[in-house]
Write a protein that binds this DNA or RNA. Structure first.
Lengths: 134, 134
DNA sequence: GAACCACGCAACAAAAATTGTTACTTCAAA
DNA sequence: TTTGAAGTAACAATTTTTGTTGCGTGGTTC
C-alpha cells in the first residue's frame, strides 16, 4: 500500500457503503475489495466507529453499517476521525531553550494551525454521498 | 524527529533566513539550530533550491541564501517544493479491473485533488515573511 | 446447547519510509 | 596549496505502517 492508505481505505469503503446504506458488510468483504486483510479494515473502521460514523455488530449476521445518512457524513468527519493532522504542529516536548527559537516555533505552529482549520472547513463541504458509486 | 519534519525544518529555516536575508548560512549552522545534521539539511534545502527558493554556494564563504524576497516566498511554494501531497491521490499503478471500482477510485481522486488545490491556494496566502523572527 | 460466524484485541512479524552517519568528491575563496 | 563549504552515494539505524496469527467475546442459527 501507500501513504495515506488509511484515508484512502476509509473513503473507498464509505463510498461503497453510501451507495447501498442498508447492506451490512463484513470486514472480510471490505478487505477483499480493498486488497488488504480484515484486521487492517477493523483497525481503520474502528476509528470511524469511535467517531460515530459507523456501527458494527458481532455475531452471525454481523458486520459494518453507516451510522447515519451518507449526506450527513463529511470528509472532515472522516479526516478528523482518523486523527491524521497533515501538517502536524510541533511537539510540545522539544521546547527550545532559546527565546527567539521558541517565538519562531510558536509562529510556525500558529500559521500551520490556521491552515489546518481551513483544510477541515474545506473538507466539511463534501460528503460521502458525493463520492458514492452508481 | 517526527512526521512532517521536512516541512517543519524547511519553514523553521526559512523563518530564520527571512529575518536576515543577507546573511549566508552553512548547513552546519542550520543543522545545529534544528537539532539534526548537515547532510539532512542539505537534502531538504536541496529541494527548495531546485524549486528556485534558495541558492547555495560551495567554497570557503559558501552556504545558503534566499533566492528572492521573503515576501515573495509563500508556504505553497515550500509545500510544493517538498512534493508531499498530503492527500496523495491513488497510484496510477493499481487500476482495479472492475469498472465500478475504477469509477469509485476516480471519484475519490477527483475530490481529493480539489481539496489539495484548495489547500495550496490557502498556503499561497501566507509568506515566510510572516513567520520570520524578530 | 452446540456449531458457527462476525468483530475486538493483543502481540508479534514484516515491510516501508524516514532519518542519521560516514566517506568521498567537487568547487571556490583565502 | 590549504581550507571550508556543498553534492552525493552508500549504508545503518530508527520509526512508522502494514500484515499476520491467535484467542476472546458476543450474537445467530440449527
Amino acid at each position: 500500500m501507500k501513504r495515506n492508505s488509511r484515508l484512502s481505505l476509509a473513503l473507498h469503503t464509505l463510498g461503497h457503503m453510501a451507495s447501498a446504506p442498508d447492506r451490512v458488510r463484513t470486514s472480510a468483504d471490505i478487505a477483499a475489495h480493498a486488497g488488504t486483510n480484515p484486521v487492517v479494515v477493523r483497525r481503520v473502521l474502528g476509528r470511524l466507529r469511535e467517531a460515530g460514523l459507523l456501527t458494527s455488530e458481532k455475531g452471525h449476521a454481523g458486520g459494518w453499517r453507516l451510522a447515519r445518512n451518507p449526506s450527513e457524513i463529511s470528509l472532515a468527519d472522516v479526516y478528523l476521525a482518523l486523527d491524521e493532522r497533515l501538517v502536524a504542529s510541533s511537539d510540545e516536548a522539544d521546547t527550545p531553550s532559546c527565546a527567539v527559537e521558541r517565538a519562531l516555533q510558536k509562529r510556525v505552529s500558529g500559521v500551520l494551525d490556521e491552515i489546518e482549520e481551513s483544510l477541515v472547513a474545506r473538507l466539511a463541504e463534501t460528503t460521502i454521498a458525493e463520492i458514492r458509486t452508481g
